[in-house]
């Protein structure tokens, strides 16, 4: 089956910056849990930055503080960001399930200590998934994040865990 998910590991995009503990409740509010992605994506982060969902453009980069995606297991959190065109999320740290879900849906993430302090809203960010390098060309600052483990990058390369399942479905015992 044709898989159109880009496997390019380098991104360059406009930064939207958020603080610590951005929860799945703001990434995917519970009240819209049963709505389709077209509705859900309109409410992404609205309680912390009402302009985000309307103004974010394809290829933009989300930069955040610690514990990004904390809270529920709802995969709609990374899915909503992906649907809005976010190219990748770079954060000081991620909540475990969010990170797992991001990989599962094919949204690239990079853990990068200090990243929250070196970007402002509207800056440009350059991110290299393979090396973990995160660069702010406007200020010349470069940080080295932790590249994802090979096991997780393989799932991203495949375009997510469902693509993996389609490529190698379980056989009979």
């Amino acid at each position: 089956m044709a898989d159109t998910t880009p496997t390019d590991e380098k991104f360059r995009g406009k930064v939207w910056r958020f603080d610590d503990d951005i929860s799945t409740d703001v990434l995917s509010p519970g009240a819209f849990a049963l709505d389709p992605v077209e509705v859900r994506m309109l409410h992404v982060l609205e309680s912390v930055n009402p302009a985000f969902a309307a103004e974010v453009e394809s290829g933009d980069v989300v930069v955040a503080g610690r514990n990004f995606g904390c809270g529920s297991s709802r995969e709609t959190a990374p899915e909503n960001l992906k649907a809005l065109g976010v190219a990748c999320v770079v954060a000081e740290s991620f909540a475990r399930i969010f990170m797992r879900n991001a990989v599962a849906v094919g949204l690239p993430v990079v853990v990068c200590s200090g990243v929250h302090g070196v970007f402002d809203d509207g800056d440009t960010a350059e991110v290299d998934l393979a090396s973990g390098l995160v660069h702010n060309p406007g200020t010349g600052t470069q940080l080295r994040g932790d590249p994802l483990p090979e096991e997780m990058r393989e799932i991203l390369h495949a375009g997510g865990i469902l693509a993996l399942l389609r490529n190698s479905p379980p056989g009979p015992d």
Partner: peptide, 14 residues
Amino acid sequence: GIGTSDMVYALATG
């Protein structure tokens, strides 16, 4: 806790 895509994978393959 896991997400839905992981759950699909888990239900399919165990």
